[in-house]
Design a protein around this nucleic acid. Structure first.
Length: 564
RNA sequence: GCGCCUGUAGCUCAGUCGGAUAGAGCAACAGCCUUCUAAGCUGUGGGCCGCUGGUUCGAUUCCAGCCGGGCGCACCA
């Protein structure tokens, strides 16, 4: 519908130019709005205002000129077009047009709303990528929900999307992890040991150490009756803990409904000499220099605040060196787009990574870095204190176990990612009208319930809807019905917008609006009436709402329950 | 001090590629269940869109400066 309006407006513009009524100019982007008042029509465009300046004519004049031209060949779905206010062009749509939309939904079913904007394009989306030193906590959950919803959105508009988790499986923190487990292990054996402050403290380390204790005797040193060295224990503990924690993380994600296509190992980058190659590439671009005993990349040349070290005085590589190699690897895999999802605590890295990408000769425009702000976990409005140092943080698993996958996902996605998020556990769990998840799911369940009652009365829904034509939908004339139809017709636009702006929260907002209209309608009118013709039309409408609710919930990874 | 994000109703937030009288939920108050699920619906009140200036026919939206909040500013990960 919107596309058609835009295209007839374009035609009218061209005509006006051809007839000399308007000067030739760059075709302006045509914006369609919903007027604030019903009397102002179904759609409106402020096009005349934006033309007024370059055309040196009053908006009102331009608007009436365009309306005259539009009226010369009015498409059948338009009732009339008016000039309003200082120069708005208002469109009044015939009801039959809405009926066409409904039929389209009933025909397309779950593919309604999808488009092909991204067909043939491959996207790599990297998210979560938490260090494998402990279980995922709530902030990772937001990243996980976001990455997965973006994946679903991008797939809905035709992109081929791969999900990847970058695994920091080497370096200081892995050493520290091994030491932490080893210390706990030795404590279990009765040694008197103070745990250093920097060691990982969580109780999960203790659990891992217990398992480790059972496993360690299998080492050859033991069978030979020798005592293994501390270094060996730490090395074994590192490998063991890493494997354990990775499977913990994977299990948590699986519980959350997320399965990565690829776990990308940082260690593999080093093993395959890719870090060296990336540095060599930068060297060839004369981006690398030595100073103060370290090796630097001149990222300031590409807009970073300061140059960055890649090889420390000690001879060790920094993580930034791996990151450079990782991004080189991504670009070399030939994706059309790459998306990274990072927490706000990493936003300082955006400039340096983009700089490194540019410096290697790749296009930084192909890389989107989505930053999400942190999560404030609340219970009944009061903050839940978290401290990673003491190991007392709320894990994603705990949240999911307490409030469920659906509510957790919905809450994480409800807000724009660059605003901080209040997540109230008590609210997410409550089954009251304060809780938007249930509000939306209830709308879906309600429709299912209507269908069950209809079925009891011998109405075959599928049959009733199958082969429906416009004529069958004529009974849909209530304002609440038109509102629903109109909202349904915006679904494809909502998806494209959410996908192109990488903003899944637009789907949450849409869902709440659609659910509100459904609930309102439910109280205004009975679906199943004595009148077979009306009943059939209304069932068709309910089916369309159900299809869209289910589809939109699906984009968020939230289920659409049949019963509540 | 510098950088990024943010400031909209009492609270939590939509809206912002400049456009008509700025929206929703919650909270408050007043109503609605012999009828397809009341996890719902209806109504009322509630706003210098942080402040100041600039650009514009028009600014909550763009720009600059200030003020407040969050997060970063390592040869840490």
């Amino acid at each position: 519908m919107q596309d058609q309006l835009i295209s007839i407006l374009k035609t009218a513009l061209e005509k006006a130019v051809a007839e000399g009524q308007l000067k030739q100019q760059e075709s302006p982007s045509i914006i369609l709005d919903i007027p604030p008042q019903k009397e102002q029509g179904d759609y409106a465009t402020p096009l005349a205002f934006s033309l007024a300046k370059t055309q040196k004519q009053s908006p009102r004049h331009i608007a009436s000129l365009l309306v005259t031209l539009l009226n010369q060949s009015l498409p059948p779905f338009i009732e009339r077009i008016e000039v309003a206010g200082a120069g708005y062009i208002n469109f009044f749509i015939k009801q039959e047009a809405w009926r066409k939309t409904l039929l389209e939904i009933l025909n397309k079913r779950e593919v309604y709303g999808q488009s092909n904007l991204g067909v043939g394009k491959r996207v790599l989306i990297e998210f979560v990528s938490a260090n494998p030193t402990g279980p995922l906590h709530v902030a990772h959950g937001r990243a996980a929900a976001l990455g997965d919803a973006l994946t679903r959105l991008l797939r809905a508009v035709g992109f081929t999307v791969e999900q990847e988790y970058y695994l920091n499986d080497m370096g200081t923190q892995m050493t520290l992890l091994g030491q932490s487990t080893a210390l706990r292990y030795r404590k279990l054996l009765g040694e008197e040991i103070e745990l250093p402050a920097e060691a990982y403290q969580g109780s999960y380390i203790n659990d891992i150490a217990k398992e480790f204790k059972d496993k360690l005797p299998q080492l050859p040193q033991y069978s030979l009756g020798q005592n293994p060295s501390v270094a060996l224990i730490e090395e074994e503990a590192r490998k063991f803990s890493f494997t354990k924690i990775c499977s913990m993380i994977e299990a948590d994600l699986q519980m959350f409904g997320i399965h990565f296509d690829r776990w990308f190992s940082e260690a593999a980058l080093h093993k395959n000499k890719e870090v060296e190659q990336a540095i060599a590439l930068l060297r060839s671009k004369e981006m690398v220099y030595e100073a103060d005993g370290a090796t630097w990349v001149a990222t300031t040349r590409y807009g970073d605040d300061k140059d960055r070290v890649i090889l420390r005085q000690s001879g060790e590589m920094t993580y930034f060196a791996s990151d450079i190699a990782y991004h080189k690897n991504k670009f070399d895999r030939g994706y059309d787009r790459m998306i990274n999802i990072w927490g706000a605590d990493h936003h300082g890295y955006v400039a340096r990574v983009k700089a490194a990408v540019s410096a290697m000769g790749y296009s930084p425009q192909s890389l989107d870095i989505v930053i999400h702000q942190l999560v404030n976990l609340l219970r009944d409005g009061k903050p839940v204190r978290m401290s990673k140092r003491s190991g007392e943080f709320v894990t994603l698993r705990e949240v999911i176990e307490e409030v469920g996958v659906d509510a957790t996902r919905f809450f994480f996605l409800m807000r724009r990612s660059d605003t901080s998020l209040d997540f109230d556990l008590a609210l997410a769990k409550s089954t009251s009208d304060e809780n938007p998840v249930y509000y939306v799911q209830y709308a879906h369940a309600r429709i299912c319930s209507i269908f069950r009652v209809a079925a009891e009365q011998g109405l075959d829904i599928e049959n009733a809807v199958l082969g429906m034509t416009e004529v069958d939908l004529i009974p849909l004339t209530l304002p609440e019905e038109i509102d629903l139809l109109q909202k349904l017709s915006f679904y494809p636009d909502t998806i494209s917008e959410a996908a192109s702006r990488l903003e899944p929260h637009r789907i949450n907002v849409y869902l709440m609006e659609l659910a509100a209209l459904l609930h309102r309608y439910y109280f205004k009118a009975r679906i199943i009436t004595e009148d077979r013709v009306t009943t059939r039309a209304r069932l068709g409408l309910m089916m369309a709402v159900q299809i869209v609710l289910r589809s939109a919930l699906g984009l968020l990874g939230v289920t659409a329950p049949e019963k509540m």
